[in-house]
């Protein structure tokens, strides 16, 4: 069909003009790509920062728990009954039962090099340790609720002590840190993303501003709007694609340098492994973000100068 062929020709010409304009504007293109690359670099850093923050938060969360120690005369059945009732609470993530003998073997293992303790244990005829439940909550701020449940009168005869009260201050402080970390992370992401989008947008708009006379000429020669807008959008997308690849190339060596230091701070976080493990998805994010910035700012900028 003729119309199909002419559409293909038009598309081909629009892409050709876009590439041509990109290549022939030389320095202007390089400078624009550099700015978009910085915007994408910030974006990439935010992704990695959020990933590390999430990791750090999970590590902190995992370290928070409460233990319930039972009196030694309480039977295992009774303890398991308590376990089941605790598990039925909505706030509880999981409950682990540690029997008296398990507690003893863990204790012995931990202190196997300490002769005094080993000897002291041998002197004792009976296992001095209590059975306990180790409870983890879904959210650190749930611990007071769980603690209140454990301290109620029904359990008064069974429970020796609940560690929450001793650790209350630390748990609350960690809960606050976790929440602050999350809030700051989200706020930082939003603000920096907006700033980097505005900077990239402004740069592309300036690039197009410098060629606004050409838009007028194209109008006067009788070019339909798609012929004017199209090449600028193609050009903007090329900026985005190149900037996306460059931002990944730029951050790779920085991650290699930073990774060992981060590992010292947070042993469970291997940022280098995360980066290379997620290389394709990260590149995809960068491409989507870069192409969107490039194309959108071109559309916005050209629209301004097309009213001739």
């Amino acid at each position: 069909m003729g119309s199909y062929r002419s559409m293909a020709t038009t598309l081909y010409r629009i892409i050709k003009y876009g590439i041509q304009s990109f290549l022939r504007h030389g320095w202007l293109s390089i400078a624009t790509i550099a700015v978009i690359m910085l915007a994408l670099f910030v974006f990439l850093n935010l992704i990695l920062f959020n990933m590390m923050a999430k990791n750090a938060i999970n590590i902190l969360r995992d370290k928070i728990d409460i233990n319930v120690y039972f009196n030694n005369n309480v039977s295992e059945d009774d303890i398991l009954k308590v376990k089941r009732s605790v598990e039925s609470l909505a706030e509880v993530k999981n409950v682990q039962y540690v029997s008296r003998s398990e507690a003893l073997s863990v204790f012995q293992k931990r202190h196997q090099d300490d002769d005094t303790i080993v000897q002291a244990l041998e002197v004792l005829e009976e296992n001095p340790l209590s059975a306990s439940l180790n409870i983890k909550a879904n959210d650190p701020s749930d611990y007071p609720i769980i603690s209140a449940y454990l301290n109620n009168e029904n359990l008064a005869g069974l429970v020796d002590q609940v560690t929450y009260n001793q650790n209350k201050l630390v748990i609350n402080r960690l809960a606050t840190i976790v929440n602050t970390f999350q809030t700051v992370g989200i706020a930082l992401t939003v603000i920096l993303t907006i700033i980097s989008i505005l900077v990239a947008l402004n740069t592309i708009m300036l690039t197009i501003y410098s060629t606004r006379d050409e838009i007028g000429i194209m109008r006067l020669v009788g070019a339909p709007n798609k012929f004017i807008r199209g090449p600028y959008i193609v050009q903007g997308m090329i900026y985005g694609i190149i900037a996306a690849f460059l931002s990944i190339l730029l951050i790779a060596p920085l991650i290699s340098i930073a990774s060992p230091y981060i590992k010292v701070l947070m042993p469970e976080t291997d940022i280098q492994q995360y980066f290379y493990g997620h290389l394709f998805i990260l590149l995809l994010y960068q491409l989507i973000f870069g192409i969107a910035i490039g194309a959108l700012s071109s559309i916005i900028a050209v629209r301004k100068y097309m009213k001739i």
Partner: peptide, 28 residues
């Protein structure tokens, strides 16, 4: 239309400036 200040597209050469008027019309 011909103007005093020529109004050629600066990133296109003479051939492409002329061809542009045909290309935007979708001519083969």
């Amino acid at each position: 239309i011909v103007f005093q200040d020529f109004r050629l597209l600066s990133v296109k050469n003479a051939y492409e400036n002329i061809a542009f008027a045909l290309e935007v019309e979708g001519r083969p």
